[in-house]
Simulated assay, not measured.
Amino acid sequence: MAKVKYYYDPDTLSYRKIEVRKRDKFKNTVVFTLAFALSGLIGFIVLDQFIVSPKERAQNRELENLKLQYELLNKRIEESSNVLADLQERDNYIYRTYFEANPIPDEQRKAGFGGVNKYKKLEGFDNSKMIINLTKDIDILSKQIVVQSKSLDEIVNLAKEKEKMLASIPAIQPLKNQDLKRMASGFGMRMHPILKSWKMHKGMDFTAPTGTPIYASGNGTVIRSARSSTFGNVIYIDHGYGYETIYAHMSKMVAKRGQKVKRGDLIGYVGNTGRSAAPHLHYEVHKNGRPVNPIYYYYGDLSPEEFTAMQKASQEQRQSYD
């Protein structure tokens, strides 16, 4: 029940009842209603800033998780890029240098990302910049991995070819010579035993009893196995890569023309055929059609000390045997 309100009338010196007109009542009701509605709206707006629905809360958690995963993925990309950069450096300056291959320039490793904007479809979103940057990093990394993978395939092929080449190069003495006493005459100007004049001796002479086994000094193909007036029974082996070896004055030839041989295979026996002063093996190494000193091609079975001793002996002005 509404309280009755009075006011003091000085004319009558008495209290009189306050009468509220209907118009004022209506006005007050409207004002109160509007004030209540306005306060409710303001309260809802304020509360909405602090009260989050379960759906919004889940979306916020998912967004935070995505940001965390982005940071972790970005870190992994950075780590992978560092590992790849180290591999690229070793590839250029160690692997490719060893196999005498040209390094791959950075322009080639990172090529193919100019021109048309391939990331336009990722634009227009709140996090477009973040997504585009991440996608670019992944594309660059993928491109570099492809280039590096092809480079390593090339290195593997070069290694196989290098292994083949190393097995083909003449690298051992053509007969057993553990005590190094069989080397009789070295490469260079020598007195010819029959002509009695100084002539260029294009190989090395190894003295040994007739019938001593002779071995191929590297992998290759026999291109000649025949008799010569000068070399007697002689075998020529083409090792590829510009290398060829000659084994002369054999008593017996074992390897035949066209035969594939490997380093250490028996190809014949020491003899005294052709223009020869005594049983021995005359051995030559040719590189790109020119005779070279065979002593530099014994690294396969000589220690540094043995090489030095043989080199010193080969430089003595001895008479050759052929």
Score class of each variant (00 low, 15 high):
265 D>C: 08
157 N>L: 13
224 R>S: 08
300 G>F: 03
241 Y>V: 05
173 Q>I: 02
121 K>E: 12
52 V>D: 15
29 T>F: 13
51 I>E: 10
258 G>Y: 10
59 Q>T: 08
29 T>R: 11
5 K>G: 00
310 M>G: 03
95 Y>M: 07
33 T>H: 04
45 I>G: 14
273 T>L: 06
170 P>N: 03
19 E>R: 12
279 P>A: 12
3 K>D: 06
246 I>G: 00
236 Y>H: 13
297 Y>K: 02
171 A>Q: 06
58 A>S: 13
151 S>V: 04
116 V>N: 09
68 L>C: 09
50 F>R: 11
67 K>Y: 13
304 P>C: 07
154 E>S: 15
179 D>C: 06
211 G>Q: 07
79 E>M: 09
160 K>L: 15
155 I>E: 08
122 L>M: 14
232 G>N: 04
52 V>A: 14
11 D>W: 00
158 L>F: 11
47 L>C: 11
290 R>V: 11
269 Y>P: 01
56 E>M: 10
60 N>K: 12
210 T>M: 10
265 D>Q: 14
171 A>M: 05
74 N>F: 05
251 S>L: 01
105 P>L: 04
206 F>P: 02
208 A>T: 12
182 R>W: 07
36 F>E: 12
245 T>W: 00
16 R>G: 01
128 S>I: 05
143 K>L: 05
210 T>D: 07
319 Q>G: 04
98 Y>Q: 05
7 Y>H: 01
131 I>D: 07
14 S>Q: 12
172 I>S: 03
37 A>N: 06
165 M>L: 08
137 D>G: 03
164 K>S: 15
87 L>Q: 14
211 G>W: 07
153 D>M: 13
170 P>F: 01
222 V>A: 02
153 D>E: 15
294 P>A: 01
292 V>P: 01
17 K>H: 08
173 Q>V: 01
269 Y>E: 03
58 A>K: 14
215 Y>E: 07
103 P>M: 04
127 N>M: 11
227 R>S: 09
175 L>M: 10
7 Y>G: 00
320 S>Q: 12
41 L>N: 11
107 E>W: 08
289 G>F: 02
310 M>R: 09
234 V>E: 06
263 R>I: 08
132 I>E: 03
196 K>G: 06
107 E>G: 13
96 R>W: 00
105 P>C: 05
91 D>K: 01
145 I>D: 05
50 F>Y: 15
144 Q>W: 05
39 S>C: 09
50 F>W: 14
66 L>R: 14
130 M>H: 02
234 V>F: 05
127 N>Y: 15
206 F>W: 06
125 F>P: 04
39 S>E: 04
41 L>M: 14
16 R>K: 11
